[in-house]
Simulated assay, not measured.
Amino acid sequence: MDVDLRKLRYFVAVADHLHFGRAAAALHIAQPVLSRQIRALEHELKTQLFDRTKRATALTRAGEQLLTDARPLLAGADALQRRVQRAALAADRFTVGFMPGLIVTPATRVLAARHRDLTVDVLRTSWDDQTEVVHDGRVDVSYVRLPIDQNGLQIRPLLTEPRVAAVPLDHLLAAKDGISISDLAHEHLLQNPDAVPEWRDIAVELRTGRGEPPPPIRTVEEKLEHVAAGRGLVVLPLSTATYYTRPDITWVPIDDIGPNHVCLAWDNTRTDPLIHEFTEIATAQAQRPYTPA
């Protein structure tokens, strides 16, 4: 049986909303049409995907499994479309992703100067999507901060930088010249613990109850708003902390953890000569201080 991606998209919409009416509205189709498509998918798969009553809609075990498998399948289909479109534009466009605090202007300027007919674009990324934008074709290369899942990627190390704790000015740690990671063990970390595994391991070991991921706070700006309000702390690379300087927050060096590693990442199936050329430019530029024009 060939899987119908359109029916899968309809299924995921219902699974996300657990309500046929709301899912139909989100898809901009009539509810009876959506119901027929889901019934057709169940018939094709020879299994029931939803338990439906007058009061509620819930996934069956088969539905839960399909949802797990459908999301990456649909993401892969979207990525395929982007890569095909990118290939059509490859002769005149090159896109570079970058994490907050990193300045990519020197390298992109050199590439653009060498290829006058090339449009060099940039795309700001975050901890959550810094590799996703490579896999789905939104960027050709991306400046990433480790740790990341390196599956399917080619990685070129560029530089390292110290990590610091961003704290509100009235925090007990704010006046210190340096701290250890254990000083943060009982603090609430306003970021994914996997981004700071040293803190995560100590927090879990001490059973502080802080080892669970916090509610999603996606941007640096949002995290710093929460820091200033006294709701927790964040650990940042030094360049990010200094880039987002604000009067109600200070940063303190963390003396006993390793630096943040900045690398360039790209899809390991790509053979575009521009990627190789840009990695060489970026590697050379990473050793030089940035001087605005």
Results as ranks from 00 to 15, higher is better:
residue 36 R to A: 13
residue 35 S to Q: 15
residue 26 A to K: 08
residue 8 L to Y: 11
residue 29 I to R: 06
residue 8 L to W: 11
residue 16 D to L: 10
residue 19 H to N: 14
residue 25 A to H: 04
residue 22 R to V: 01
residue 20 F to R: 08
residue 26 A to M: 04
residue 23 A to G: 08
residue 11 F to C: 05
residue 11 F to D: 06
residue 24 A to Y: 01
residue 23 A to V: 05
residue 3 V to W: 12
residue 25 A to C: 00
residue 1 M to K: 01
residue 38 I to G: 06
residue 22 R to P: 00
residue 36 R to T: 15
residue 34 L to F: 03
residue 21 G to L: 10
residue 23 A to I: 05
residue 34 L to T: 07
residue 17 H to E: 15
residue 16 D to A: 14
residue 12 V to K: 10
residue 11 F to N: 06
residue 27 L to G: 06
residue 7 K to D: 10
residue 37 Q to K: 13
residue 34 L to D: 05
residue 25 A to K: 07
residue 14 V to T: 02
residue 2 D to Q: 14
residue 33 V to S: 09
residue 34 L to M: 08
residue 8 L to M: 14
residue 18 L to G: 04
residue 31 Q to P: 09
residue 6 R to H: 14
residue 23 A to M: 04
residue 29 I to F: 02
residue 4 D to S: 12
residue 21 G to C: 04
residue 26 A to C: 04
residue 7 K to A: 08
residue 18 L to T: 08
residue 22 R to I: 00
residue 9 R to N: 11
residue 29 I to C: 08
residue 5 L to Q: 13
residue 15 A to E: 05
residue 30 A to G: 13
residue 24 A to R: 01
residue 9 R to T: 09
residue 27 L to C: 09
residue 16 D to V: 10
residue 28 H to N: 12
residue 37 Q to Y: 12
residue 26 A to G: 12
residue 17 H to R: 12
residue 7 K to E: 11
residue 18 L to N: 08
residue 26 A to L: 03
residue 36 R to N: 14
residue 21 G to N: 13
residue 18 L to S: 07
residue 3 V to E: 12
residue 30 A to T: 12
residue 13 A to Q: 02
residue 37 Q to R: 15
residue 25 A to P: 00
residue 25 A to M: 05
residue 28 H to F: 06
residue 1 M to F: 03
residue 19 H to T: 05
residue 14 V to H: 01
residue 38 I to Q: 09
residue 9 R to P: 00
residue 1 M to E: 06
residue 14 V to C: 01
